[in-house]
Amino acid sequence: MQPKITGYRQLNEAEAALMNEIKARGVELGELVQKLRGTEGLDQRWVSIGATDLQTGLMALTRGVAQPTTF
Score class of each variant (00 low, 15 high):
Trp46Gly: 06
Glu40Leu: 01
Ile49Phe: 02
Glu28Asn: 08
Phe71Pro: 10
Arg25Asn: 07
Arg25Thr: 07
Asn12Gly: 13
Gly30Arg: 02
Arg63His: 06
Thr52Val: 08
Gly26Arg: 02
Gly7Phe: 05
Val47Leu: 08
Gln10Asp: 12
Glu31Gly: 08
Gly41Asp: 06
Thr39Met: 09
Arg37Gly: 03
Met59Val: 12
Leu32Asn: 03
Ala66Met: 09
Met1Val: 11
Gln55Met: 04
Asp43Ser: 08
Leu18His: 07
Ala17His: 09
Ile22Thr: 10
Val65Ser: 09
Glu31Pro: 00
Leu29Phe: 09
Ser48Tyr: 00
Gly64Thr: 03
Met19His: 05
Ala66Ile: 04
Pro3Trp: 03
Leu42Thr: 07
Asn12Thr: 05
Gln67Leu: 10
Ala60Ser: 05
Ala17Ile: 02
Arg9Asp: 09
Ile5Pro: 09
Gly50Gln: 02
Val27Cys: 01
Ala17Gly: 01
Arg9Val: 09
Ala24Met: 01
Thr62Phe: 08
Trp46Arg: 09
Leu11Tyr: 10
Lys4Asp: 11
Thr6Asp: 15
Gly30Pro: 02
Phe71Arg: 14
Val65Tyr: 06
Leu61Thr: 06
Ala51Arg: 10
Gly64Asn: 05
Val65His: 04
Gln67Lys: 15
Glu15Tyr: 10
Gly38Glu: 03
Gly64Val: 07
Ala14Asp: 15
Met59Cys: 10
Trp46Pro: 00
Val27Tyr: 01
Gln10Trp: 03
Leu18Arg: 13
Val27Gly: 04
Gly26Asp: 13
Gly57Val: 07
Arg9Ser: 11
Asp43Asn: 14
Lys35Cys: 00
Ala16Cys: 02
Leu36His: 09
Leu29Tyr: 14
Leu18Gln: 15
Thr6Gln: 15
Thr6Leu: 14
Gln10Gly: 00
Lys35Asn: 09
Ser48Cys: 00
Thr70Glu: 08
Glu15Ser: 10
Met59Gln: 13
